[in-house]
Amino acid sequence: MTVDLNADIGEGFGIWRIGDDQAMLGMVTSANLACGFHAGDPAGLLEVCKLAAEAGAHVGAQVSYRDLHGFGRRFIDVSFEDLFADVIYQIGALQAVAAVAGTRVSYVKPHGALYNTVFSHTQQARAVTAAVLAVDPGLPVLGQPGSELFRQAEMVGLRTVAEVFADRAYKADGTLAPRREPGAVLHEPAIIAERAVRMVKEGVVQADDGTIVDVRVDSICLHGDSPGAPHIAAAVWEQLRRNHIDLQPFA
């Protein structure tokens, strides 16, 4: 039994650093790198790409709205044409940085508010998938099963990779609990690790109301900007291996 373990990293900007990217890269198999629109600056991303190459972690373009001020967590009613071009721009920028660092972009994942929006927003989901297709039809899209993003991706022949969140609360309908709700983000390493194992072995997660929700798991996401993120990643890594679940990149 194998699974991918991914984390959002490279989210610092200038003198402001978020999380311990080097520590996270020692444990994850895939790294979702900010592309400069919600976080990340060129010098920092070049450094993180080099670290990812050394660690053997696959690099993904974490594309977002143009929202540095809000860390990409605010919905923007952007047109198809603008979002299409923005996603192309972000993937292309990270491709160049990754190539210089000795690695490559292996997949694409929306970030924050864009991730939540393309679960049901047809036009924005179509803009993201059209952009990925235009840049490289071989790039997989990482996201939530049952989403409009996956429907649009499958319609144009893009590979979809099913993701779950061990450190986020779920609603009974299988969507993520909004961050503004108490308990939406989990912080206890042991609890997060236990959830990760159950997701992989049983294919379920307990929602915030106690409902048992079916999940499909190709990759488990952790958030590199959470307090104590490396400790959480270490606990998840240890519990997965203890339960004979091997960590391998999906891409």
Rank of each mutant, 00 (worst) to 15 (best):
V3M: 03
N6Y: 04
G10T: 09
G14I: 01
I15R: 12
I15M: 10
W16N: 14
W16T: 14
I18A: 12
G19M: 06
G19K: 07
D20H: 14
D21N: 09
Q22M: 11
M27D: 01
M27F: 07
L33I: 14
F37C: 03
A39V: 00
A39P: 01
A39R: 01
A39W: 02
G40I: 04
D41G: 00
L45H: 04
C49E: 02
L51C: 10
A53P: 06
H58R: 14
R66H: 11
L68T: 13
H69V: 15
H69T: 08
F71T: 06
G72S: 05
G72L: 00
R73I: 07
R73S: 08
R74V: 14
F75T: 14
S79E: 10
F80Q: 08
E81P: 04
A85S: 10
A85D: 13
D86R: 04
Y89D: 15
Q95A: 13
A98S: 11
A99V: 11
G102W: 05
T103H: 05
R104Y: 03
K109N: 08
P110T: 00
Y115R: 02
Y115F: 13
Y115T: 06
N116G: 06
N116K: 04
N116L: 01
T117Q: 05
V118D: 00
H121W: 08
H121R: 11
H121Q: 05
Q124M: 11
V132P: 06
L133D: 12
A134R: 12
G143T: 02
Q152Y: 08
V156Q: 10
G157S: 04
R159Y: 00
A162H: 15
F165L: 08
A166F: 04
G174W: 06
T175W: 00
E181Q: 14
L186D: 03
H187G: 11
E188T: 10
A190H: 10
V197K: 07
R198H: 11
M199I: 10
E202H: 13
G203A: 09
A207Q: 08
A207D: 05
V213F: 00
R216Y: 04
C221L: 09
L222I: 12
D225I: 08
G228Y: 07
G228S: 03
A229W: 01
H231Y: 13
I232H: 06
W237Q: 10
L240G: 00
L240T: 09
I245D: 04
I245N: 13
I245L: 07
L247D: 07
F250P: 02
A251I: 00
